[in-house]
Structures are given as structure tokens and as C-alpha cells.
Amino acid sequence: MNSQKWMSVQFFIFFFTWGVFLPYWTGYLTNVKDLSVASASVIMGAGMIARAFSTLILFPELTKRYSIHLFLRMLAIGSLATFVLYIPLSSFTMLLLITILFSLVYPNLLPAMESSASLLMQKDRIHYGRSRSFGSAGFMAAVLVIGFATARYGEQAILWVMIGALAFVVLATALKAPTALIDKPKKEHQVSTWQLAKVLLQQKEFLIALTIVILIQGSHASYNSYSFIYLQDIGVSNSWIGVIINVAVLAEIVLFMLADRIFGKSKVQTMFMIAAIGATVRWIAIWLFPFASVFVATQVLHAITFGLAHYAFIQFIARTLHKSSIPTAQGLYAAFAMSLSSALLTFMGGYLYDLQPGLAFLGMAVFSVPAIILILAQRSKLQA
């Protein structure tokens, strides 16, 4: 199996699990474990904080000790082993503890996958967008499976589909990996994670790019955590919820398939600006028009609000950083843009959702608008 195919398989199977956990787990906690939206928000937010710590500290440190492929295998096994603990647990305290434990392991698969892709872009010249589109396809497949499974068997099916999907991740990471991912890190060239992070954050261009992507990706917190229950609240059936969520994923697949051709030579600042404007329009529209038809229409914007912002940052680090800095950069991205910002905004979104569901989405525009302002103010610093 060549590097391009190997990466595509890994992305597909991992993002299948992501497509189960990200949009549906809050719904599982409220519908199956009988938690309130506020309590589920606390659990998910705490998990994201643990995820931020793990991807910022544990991920870069462990990639210095183990090859990226061995680390992927360890994470896959650890994720499955911790997730099965959800089966017997029901109390708020125990669900909180197991979510924190799971979040210290499972989310590291994401920066590990992205670091693998970045290394293979440099070493084997794989097309990132092509392989990443398989990840979006995996996410879409998961949403469809969950939509129909919950319609037939109830929300309890979410748990069992996730367990089965994690078992496939274990099998996928056992496949023979490209040589670039098997090589052990050379200790004589290593510096501490904190030193690498400090060096990166002292680079103004990197700090600006990271801040922009934190604001844009963080603004997806309410969408990621509350879309499932929001669509239920406005009267959409579970089977149709799966179809509606997949509109976003399908748009994302198209974006990643065409990204290298359309945006491969575009400036990072241009891609960020398109994403930030799209996010602002998206969240305001959902608040203004609480109808399923409008929600479906805004799903198309996911291709640019999430997909293009992500692609822009991956291109930024591939174009500007040495390979030794990539795991740390991915750790910072995963910790702050995909975890900590989402955790804080999930808490806020849960409070706003209890006041009025649409406010949870409007509140996210408070973070996408500053991204637009920052891009305009610092456009001369983003020349990658």
C-alpha cells in the first residue's frame, strides 16, 4: 500500500469515529444517560480541556519517544480500552471522570494523523486534500449510519457503533506504515516541547495564523455540540438529522478534493478571510431563521468555515516549518483551536442554548468577526 492510500485509509476510519463522537455524544448523554443540556455541556467541556492539555503536552512529548506509527497504534488501543468504560457508568461524576480519561487519549489521534500527513507531504509528496477528503467521507458515512441506527434502535446505538468503529481504528493502525512514519526520533536533535512551542509562538507570523484559526475553529463549538439536539428541538427526525449533517460533510469532501487544485497556490490570508466571513454569515443565519431549510442551506458553508480554515493552517505549517517543528505546531493547533477554544465556547453555548437555542449559534459570531478584523490588520504578516 503506497503512502497516499495508507493515509487515506487512516483518515477514513478515524473520521468515522469522529463523526460518531463529535455530533452525537452530547445527544447520547442527554437522551440515554438522562443528563440535562447544562450537565452534558460541563462533561463535554471538561473533556475538551483535558484534550487541550493532552494534545499540547502529552502528544509532542510522546512523539519524541516513539515513532509516529507506533504512537498511533498505542492511541488506538488506549482509546478503545477507555471508551468501553462508558457501558456500565451512569452517574454524572463517573461520566465526567471517564470523559476526562478518554479525552486524554482519543483526541491525540487527530494531531497524530495530521502530523503523519504533513510528514508524508514533505517526504513522499502526497496530496493532502485528496487523502483528507477520505476523512470527510468517513465522517459522512458515520453520520448516515448513526442517523438510521438511532432511528431504528434509539440513541443507545451511538455507544455500540462507536465501540465498533474504534475497533477498526485499532486494525487500521496495525497496517504496515510508510517508512517516514516508522523511523524513531533522533534524541540528539531533540529539544523540549516547551522550547519548541516558545520558539514557534515567538514567530509573529505563526502566532497570528494560530490566533486566526483558533477564532474560526472555536466558533464551531455550538455547531459541534448542539446541532443534533437543536435539530430535534425544531422537529427533525433522527434519520433526517443524519442526512442534514451530511450535507456539511459532503461539501467538505468536495472542498478537500478540489483544494490542492484551487487553493494550492493561494495565500493563507486569502483562505482565512473566506473562512471567517463564511462562519459569520453561517452563525447569524441560523439565529435569524430557525428553520430546518435554512440550517440545511448553511451546511454548505461548512466547506469553507471549517474545511478551508483547516486546509489553510495545514498549508501554512507545511510551507513555513521544519519537519521537527510540525508535531509541536499540530499540538498547539489541536490544543487551542480544536480543544480549549471549543471547551470554553461549549460552556458558553450551553448557557445560551438554555436561554434560547438560536443564541448558542449567534454567540459564535462574536469570535468569527474578530478573526476578520485580525486578518485585515495583519495581512502583511501572512505571506505564506
Rank of each mutant, 00 (worst) to 15 (best):
L72A: 15
G45E: 12
R65A: 00
H69M: 00
A50F: 10
S41P: 04
L104C: 15
V42L: 14
A81T: 03
I68F: 03
F21I: 13
T26Q: 13
T55W: 02
F102H: 15
N31S: 14
A38G: 08
I49V: 15
I57N: 14
A76R: 02
L58R: 04
T26K: 07
A38C: 05
G19W: 12
F102M: 12
L97D: 02
L56Q: 07
I87H: 02
M48Y: 15
L101N: 02
L75G: 02
P88H: 04
I98F: 06
W18L: 12
T26I: 13
F21H: 03
V32A: 13
F59R: 05
V42W: 10
R51W: 03
D34T: 13
L70P: 00
L35D: 08
T26E: 09
L109K: 03
I68D: 03
L97C: 09
P23W: 00
G47N: 01
S41Y: 02
V105C: 05
F53E: 07
G27L: 12
L70M: 15
A38L: 10
T63N: 09
I98C: 06
W25G: 11
Y28F: 15
L109H: 01
D34L: 12
I57M: 12
L22R: 07
I77W: 01
S90W: 04
S41D: 07
F92S: 04
V37S: 05
V20P: 01
L89Y: 09
T99L: 00
S41E: 10
L35V: 14
I57C: 13
F53N: 08
L72M: 14
M74V: 07
V32N: 15
R51C: 07
A81E: 02
G45Q: 13
L80W: 10
L56M: 14
S90Y: 11
S103L: 04
L29E: 04
G47V: 03
S36W: 08
L35T: 06
A50P: 11
T55P: 06
I100W: 01
G27K: 08
T99F: 09
P23G: 01
A38S: 12
Y24E: 04
I77S: 06
D34G: 11
A52L: 10
A81L: 10
A52T: 08
S41Q: 03
A40D: 11
R73Y: 05
V20T: 03
L85T: 01
R73W: 02
S103V: 00
T30R: 08
L22C: 11
Y106H: 08
S91Y: 09
